Lab assay of single mutants.
Amino acid sequence: SIKEIEKEEIIKVLKEVNFNKKLASEILGIPLRTLYKRLKEYGI
């Protein structure tokens, strides 16, 4: 599903940037606030 793909992509990017959420949100092209929402939604 799209949610699974998105979750995997978020985890992959977070690992690449050593869990720097600000940098991860910039790489993913989403606002930091949205990233936090996704992390909560996906239980990351």
Rank of each mutant, 00 (worst) to 15 (best):
F19P: 02
L39K: 01
S1H: 13
I30H: 01
I2H: 13
I27A: 07
K40I: 13
I10W: 03
R33Y: 11
N18I: 03
N20M: 04
L32Q: 03
T34I: 13
P31D: 14
L14S: 01
I30M: 11
L35T: 00
I5C: 08
I5W: 14
Y36F: 10
A24Y: 01
L39C: 06
S25W: 01
I44H: 05
R38C: 07
Y36H: 09
E16M: 15
L35M: 04
S25Y: 02
K37W: 09
K21F: 15
G29V: 03
L23N: 04
I5L: 14
V17Q: 05
R33P: 07
E9A: 14
G43M: 08
L35F: 08
K37G: 05
R33I: 10
R33G: 10
L14I: 04
G29I: 02
L39D: 00
G29C: 04
N18P: 02
V17S: 08
N18H: 10
K21W: 14
A24C: 06
N20C: 07
N20I: 04
R38S: 05
K40H: 13
K21Y: 15
I2Q: 14
I44Y: 10
R33K: 14
E8H: 12
K37T: 08
E26T: 11
K15A: 09
E26I: 15
L35W: 02
L28Q: 00
I30L: 08
I30Y: 04
E6V: 08
S25G: 05
G43W: 04
K12G: 06
G43L: 07
Y36V: 15
I44R: 05
K40R: 14
K37P: 01
P31R: 07
Y36E: 15
V13H: 02
L32E: 03
P31A: 11
E41W: 06
I2T: 13
I27T: 05
K3M: 12
K22P: 06
Y42N: 03
S1I: 11
I44C: 06
K40Q: 12
L35S: 00
L14M: 12
I30D: 00
L28T: 02
E4V: 11
V17F: 05
L23K: 13
K3H: 12
I44F: 10
I5K: 14
Y36G: 04
I44A: 05
K7C: 07
T34N: 06
G43E: 08
G29K: 08
R38D: 02
G29M: 07
S1D: 13
K22C: 07
E4Q: 12
N20L: 03
G43A: 08
P31I: 03
I10Y: 05
N20W: 05
S25T: 04
A24Q: 00
N18R: 10
L32P: 04
I44K: 05
L28M: 06
R38P: 01
N20Y: 05
K22V: 12
T34V: 14
V17M: 06
K3W: 12
E4N: 11
S25L: 02
E41Y: 08
E26W: 10
A24F: 01
F19M: 07
I27H: 05
E41L: 09
I10H: 02
I44P: 04
Y36T: 10
E16P: 01
R38T: 08
T34S: 08
K7H: 06
K3C: 07
E6K: 09
G43I: 05
E9T: 14
E26C: 06
L35V: 02
K21H: 14
V17I: 04
I11S: 04
R33E: 15
K21D: 03
I10E: 01
K21S: 08
K15H: 11
E41M: 09
K37N: 09
L39S: 02
I5Y: 13
I11C: 06
E26D: 10
E4T: 09
E41R: 06
K37V: 08
V13R: 03
V17Y: 06
G43H: 09
Y36C: 10
S1Y: 03
K21G: 07
E41K: 08
I5T: 13
E6P: 09
E9L: 15
L39A: 02
F19N: 09
I44G: 04
K40M: 12
E16I: 12
L14T: 01
I27C: 04
K22N: 06
K21A: 14
K15R: 14
G43F: 08
S1T: 14
L28H: 01
I27M: 10
E26H: 11
L39Y: 02
G29N: 09
K21E: 06
A24L: 03
T34L: 14
Y42K: 02
E4G: 09
N18V: 04
Y42D: 03
K12L: 07
I44V: 07
V13S: 02
I11Y: 09
K21I: 15
L32D: 01
E6F: 08
